[in-house]
Every structure is written in C-alpha cells, then in structure tokens.
C-alpha cells in the first residue's frame, strides 16, 4: 500500500482540513452565538456591546480566510 498512497500529504490534508474546514464553521458559530445566543440582549433589547465586538472579530477572521483562499486560487496554487 505504502507506495500507492502519499501518506504525508494525506495526513497534512486531514490535519489542516480539520483545523480550517471544521475550525472556520466553528468560529462562525461562535460569532452567531455572540450575536443571537442566550443573554445577547440587554434589558432594553439591544445587543450587548462586547458581544457585537466578539461577533465582528469572528466574522472578520472568516472573511479574511475567504479572501486568502481567493488570492491563493488566483496566484495559481490551484
């Protein structure tokens, strides 16, 4: 089997796949939770400030990852 499967590449794909492919949705979910989760509104019905900041930070990382991926595709990596 060994000569037929590139185990190193495969391990890298799996590890980074989990970090990015599962990590980004998780980060997005944290952002959603910050905005809409339990306790996200104060008594006046406004979203709590620090939660907005946390959500913006989460979504910013996700957007940065998408932009990074587009640059990667355009640079001929794909």
């Amino acid at each position: 089997m060994t000569q037929y499967v590139e185990w190193d590449a495969l391990a890298n794909i799996l590890i980074f796949g989990l970090l990015i492919g599962a990590g980004l949705p998780t980060l997005f979910a944290l952002g959603v939770r910050a905005l809409a989760g339990p306790g996200s509104r104060d008594d006046a019905g406004r979203t709590v400030t620090w939660r907005v900041a946390a959500a913006v930070a989460c979504f910013a990382i996700v957007i940065a990852a998408i932009v990074g991926a587009i640059i990667y595709i355009a640079a001929g990596g794909h």
Binding site: L18, G21, A22, F28, A29, V32, L35, A36
Partner: peptide, 27 residues
C-alpha cells in the same frame, strides 16, 4: 466525512439553543 462531521458537530452544539430563524439567517 471526517472534516465535515467534526465541523457540523461543533457548529450544531454551539448553536443548539439559538432560535432557528437567527441560525438560518446568518448561516
């Protein structure tokens, strides 16, 4: 399957007590 199931498990766990409309709108 491995990557997506881990991602889905984490996401659904983190958002399980959020209103379905909020989830749908943002996701």
């Amino acid at each position: 399957i491995a990557v997506a199931s881990v991602g889905t498990a984490l996401v659904t766990r983190l958002t399980r007590d959020i209103a379905a409309e909020s989830n749908t709108r943002m996701f």
